[in-house]
Computed example of a mutant assay.
Amino acid sequence: MARIALEADGYQFHGSSSDFAADCRRYDELVAAGWLVLRFTYQQVIADPDWVVATVRRALSHRIS
């Protein structure tokens, strides 16, 4: 199993310190469990999907080789 998690971050859900803290906790828990977390902004996903896909593929190739 590659254990790669993808997140698409936007400003809307990081408006408070508690929201930000929850996001950091989730990220840290995944990393501590051996996951690679790739975080993309909403704008990157919409405006540059080819780069997002290439990045995911590159990370996946490192995880399965």
Results as ranks from 00 to 15, higher is better:
32 A>D: 12
47 A>T: 11
51 W>H: 14
51 W>T: 14
22 A>Q: 04
2 A>E: 15
36 L>G: 07
52 V>D: 02
44 Q>F: 07
37 V>Y: 02
1 M>D: 14
58 R>F: 13
33 A>N: 12
20 F>V: 08
44 Q>W: 04
48 D>K: 03
65 S>I: 14
24 C>F: 01
32 A>R: 13
65 S>K: 11
26 R>V: 00
28 D>F: 01
4 I>L: 13
30 L>S: 03
25 R>G: 00
49 P>V: 04
5 A>T: 09
3 R>Y: 12
9 D>E: 08
12 Q>D: 15
21 A>M: 00
28 D>R: 13
17 S>D: 15
32 A>V: 10
16 S>Q: 08
9 D>T: 02
50 D>Y: 08
36 L>Y: 04
45 V>P: 03
50 D>F: 10
43 Q>M: 12
16 S>I: 08
30 L>H: 02
10 G>E: 06
56 V>Y: 02
60 L>C: 13
17 S>Q: 13
16 S>N: 11
23 D>S: 04
63 R>D: 02
48 D>C: 15
54 A>W: 07
31 V>T: 11
29 E>K: 11
50 D>K: 04
45 V>A: 06
49 P>I: 04
51 W>N: 15
60 L>F: 07
52 V>N: 05
31 V>A: 08
34 G>A: 07
12 Q>Y: 14
6 L>C: 12
30 L>Q: 04
24 C>W: 02
9 D>L: 02
21 A>D: 00
38 L>S: 03
27 Y>E: 06
50 D>L: 15
22 A>F: 00
50 D>S: 14
25 R>C: 00
59 A>H: 02
27 Y>H: 04
21 A>T: 00
39 R>Y: 03
3 R>N: 12
14 H>T: 06
34 G>D: 03
45 V>H: 06
19 D>E: 13
46 I>W: 10
21 A>E: 00
5 A>W: 04
47 A>P: 03
37 V>N: 00
14 H>P: 01
60 L>H: 06
49 P>S: 10
41 T>I: 06
16 S>R: 14
48 D>E: 14
7 E>V: 07
30 L>Y: 02
5 A>L: 07
56 V>I: 15
37 V>Q: 00
51 W>M: 14
27 Y>V: 03
50 D>W: 05
44 Q>R: 07
23 D>R: 00
6 L>A: 12
13 F>R: 15
39 R>N: 04
52 V>Q: 01
1 M>W: 07
14 H>A: 13
22 A>H: 01
56 V>S: 05
57 R>A: 15
